[in-house]
Design a protein around this nucleic acid. Sequence first.
RNA 1: CUCGGGGUGGUGUCAAUGGUAGCAUAUCAGGCUGUAGACCUGAAGGUGCGGGUUCAACUCUCGUCUCCGAGACCA
Length: 341
Amino acid sequence: MNVNEKFELIKRNTQEIVTEKELMELLKNKKQPSVYLGTAITGKPHIAYFIWVLKLADFLKAGFKVKLLLADLHGALDNCPWDLLEKRYKYYSEVVSLMFKSVGADIKNFEIITGSSFQLKKDYMLDVLKYSTFVSINDCKRASADVVKYGKNPQLSGLIYPIMQSLDEVYLNIDIQYGGTDQRKILMFSRENLPRLGYKPRIEIMNPMLPGLVGKKMSASDDRTKIDLLDDEKTVKIKINKAFCPEGIIEDNGVLSFAEHVIMTILQDQNKKFIINRPEKWGGNLEFKTKEELEKSFVKKEIHPMDLKNAVVIEINKLLEPMRKNRVKLEKLAKEAYPDD
RNA sequence: CUCGGGGUGGUGUCAAUGGUAGCAUAUCAGGCUGUAGACCUGAAGGUGCGGGUUCAACUCUCGUCUCCGAGACCA
């Protein structure tokens, strides 16, 4: 794979790269660059997580060293009860590993790292304190506003969150941080402030956010807006059926977005087609090779939402196969990690 | 620690003279659409906890828990 091919592979399905020029330089000059994605272990992982699993798989294909930070301390800073951290870590690491299996990623250069394994070390903590003398309360608050749950009475922890996420770039020794666009403010905060402590700013790459099944966001806290990785076939069908999916409309269409960003990407990589089976009275079967074709056809109303939903249900159920094979084990871990569910 | 203000369905609510706990929103079911939503109809769900006064307590009283704000050498 040459540099341009790598660049295009990394860029596909992303929303923004800060900056593309720096990325190109990196690909040219470094034999094995490294990237990390951090996820606070708060909400229960759901199928939208596939979007970054796929992207990390792209990085692996492009020869990167890929680190997944399971940010337990960040989870705590964002109100995960301290006594659940360990349990949630266990659940995350099990289920995320299976997701990589689902999409057929080669995990030779993939590594899962726990936040607390390095964030409590002396040098790191000293840098947290140093950092706090270089940034204002307002900057920290603004940086974390889209990520940290600020209720009516915000905790101090929310302000520490972006500082630590920024320092993670340094202490994980990576070239790129990758995350959703909801992370943008923190990522830019990091680029602005790392130089003040004498560190180089990193490249930041963001993927678009998938709309939820109902409403605008796929929210981990609202069960109806997302499909859980442990949902059974029947539940998947019910939730997709209930999903908001206006005919011919792309905006805020969670079903279509998921089909395009996740399902089509996987099928395309496997050289398979997206197949819609339907009776003759609705026009007979359809096949799609690319997400562009699918989207065009949906906009033209050649595909009825019901057709799309039926086909998406089948594909989601395929994706969830590896989780179902380990259902008993995962459910036990999930129950401990999320006792209130 | 001191003083003050709060805690009402999942959420919101300066709704309720000591007398049927209301409204909004979300949820569930049915109807309408080849999905969902809008829409129409229906259902379920609540007074932080514990005593006391009373025929009757969300309401008064005492205690307790919890949240918020202010004060607390000097400024």
